[in-house]
């Protein structure tokens, strides 16, 4: 038999309380039970999760994180690249990072266009 510490017992009690609320207030546990009994739906869900599309999204996780981080950095440093006219846009295009970014955006636009 496994002995539980007071702390673990407290956490377990809290967890059971949460399960009770989930079931008694929102019927969520029996809903989950119903979903698990529905073999067809579970099968569909699993095949979606393991589909090429879903897996390629997961495998692109690193790049997705880079894009999200860049947007975050850009929002924080939004005044670093000053744009106040056509001349400043032209000047900005000499920056190597901006060139890489523009190339990425145009490639994405090209791919987007080809899908429609």
């Amino acid at each position: 038999m496994v002995e539980l510490s007071d702390e673990e017992l407290k956490s377990l009690k809290k967890f059971i309380e949460l399960l009770n609320i989930a079931e008694n207030k929102y019927g969520l546990i029996s809903l989950l039970e119903g979903i698990l009994e529905d073999e067809k739906a579970v099968g569909k869900l699993l095949s979606h999760i393991t589909s090429d599309e879903a897996l390629s999204i997961i495998s692109e996780k690193e790049n997705m994180l880079k894009i999200i981080a860049s947007i975050g950095d850009g929002l924080e440093e939004q005044n670093k690249v000053k744009i106040n006219g056509l001349m400043s846009i032209w000047k900005a295009t000499h920056d190597k990072d901006i060139q890489k970014g523009l190339s990425l955006v145009f490639t994405i636009l090209k791919k987007l266009g080809s899908k429609f």
Binding site: K25, Y26, G27, S30, L31, G34, I35, E37, D38, A41
Partner: peptide, 13 residues
């Protein structure tokens, strides 16, 4: 439809 069947008609939400 799925929600009704999965919840056995107990549509608390």
């Amino acid at each position: 439809t799925k929600y009704y069947i999965w919840s056995k008609g107990d549509m608390a939400l």
